[in-house]
Design a protein around this nucleic acid. Structure first.
Lengths: 225, 225
DNA sequence: ACTAGAATTTAGACATTCCTAATCATTCAA
DNA sequence: TTGAATGATTAGGAATGTCTAAATTCTAGT
């Protein structure tokens, strides 16, 4: 009766998909885990035995409180590690994900605590994602998708939601990182690209890409109360 | 065709036992790995297929060059991690072993390299054990066992070979750590205790325990050339 | 309402790594 | 030298997590 590493990974993935889609289907889970569908079905049944998910045949799964707790614990490890690797060992923000992915399952609570303190009890990882607390609470902000901003709007990048190293390097090279201040110059119709100012330079960004960038809008002049 | 974590652990353990006893028997390996004897036999056969050990039925195993290479790589990870945990995250020397034991199999070569550089290319871990080089070379010193020193002899502790946290705490509390300068005051016959000066204080030490402490003797006055 | 196609689950298999029970080999002592 | 104790191996089986192929269930379009 032990939560294995595989189970942790499934729970973490279910959590992520559930945030996005609500109920999680077998096929989406299988794709996200890079396994065949029967593997996902089998694991769902196992997770049920551990009371970490609620599962109805042909209907998909939802995390229980216990399952969410475990997922958030793993996510906390992951994000603390990403931050630690970047801050203390000089990793670039596009390289932290892969290393954290393997370390997150093996570090002790003691290690977690020491890293947390060494980093000054941080609340966000290098990609701007919030770090769950030890108690499993996760502050949720509702920032706007960059893709939704209209020309003229400006704000501060709060999150860059993409774990592909190539994409992160691409964005980083253009200054599109958390805390960067941006302004939308132009926006093509029909899901076409956005043109944005970042600091001194201007870049065109695909709408799909922009959707992964979350922005805290600066209240327009005259809009403040 | 992949070296699994279990195989790494067996190879590391075979390396350690081989240093001590020469050829490694199934039973000693099984005991050291905390598994039943048939598990050890089975793994030996598997390690043969990977050309990491030479094995003769009923005779035990010896590492091949490849096997030793892999064992030393894992040991390098282990000792770098021990040092890093102690130096950068404030772990006590009795706590580093357990954490390093789990991390050693999952860190990347990149992580290893960054830690190595962050620590200033160290050559010894917190217990005084030498850290194998990236090429798999291991400097071997032949220090004396504290148990062999005669009354009046003195020297510097170079290694404390014990991974039990309790024992390390016990020794640490008495100042018996690497680089400590000690002098043997008295030595009981028949495998009885040694009495040693460590800094300002004096302690009696069981001979078995003293055997795990390796000392670089200071040449006696008048003995220098 | 029916049916074709998509999604999902079941069935059966394989690789790992571990176990217990039983058999086989070695060795040491009388 | 022989035989009992010790040590090692074989035989057979369990748990995990994966797969492919086949059967089942669902869903949408007519």
């Amino acid at each position: 009766m032990k939560i294995t590493e595989a189970m942790q990974n499934y729970l973490k993935t279910i959590y992520r998909l559930q945030e996005r889609d609500g109920v999680v289907s077998t096929s989406s889970l299988a794709i996200a885990m890079s396994v065949a569908a029967p593997s996902a079905t089998g694991m769902m049944k196992k997770l049920v035995r551990y009371r970490t998910v609620r599962y109805t045949r042909y209907q998909g799964v939802v995390l229980t409180k216990t399952g969410r707790q475990i997922a958030l614990e793993v996510i906390r490890h992951h994000r603390l590690l990403e931050l630690y690797l970047a801050a203390s060992l000089g990793y670039s923000w596009d390289a932290v994900h892969e290393e954290a992915e393997r370390l997150e399952h093996v570090i002790s609570e003691d290690f977690e605590e020491r890293v947390f303190e060494a980093l000054g009890r941080p609340t966000r990882d290098p990609h701007g994602e919030p770090i769950p607390t030890r108690e499993g609470a996760l502050p949720v902000w509702n920032h706007d998708s960059l893709a939704d901003l209209e020309p003229g709007a400006s704000g501060t990048i709060r999150q860059v939601r993409d774990s592909s190293p190539d994409m992160l390097r691409y964005l980083g090279a253009r200054g599109l990182v958390p805390d960067a201040v941006i302004r939308v110059v132009d926006k093509a119709p029909f899901n076409g690209p956005l043109t944005v100012n970042v600091g001194a330079s201007t870049h065109a960004l695909g709408r799909d890409l922009a959707r992964h960038i979350r922005v805290e809008m600066r209240p327009m002049l005259g809009e403040q109360e």
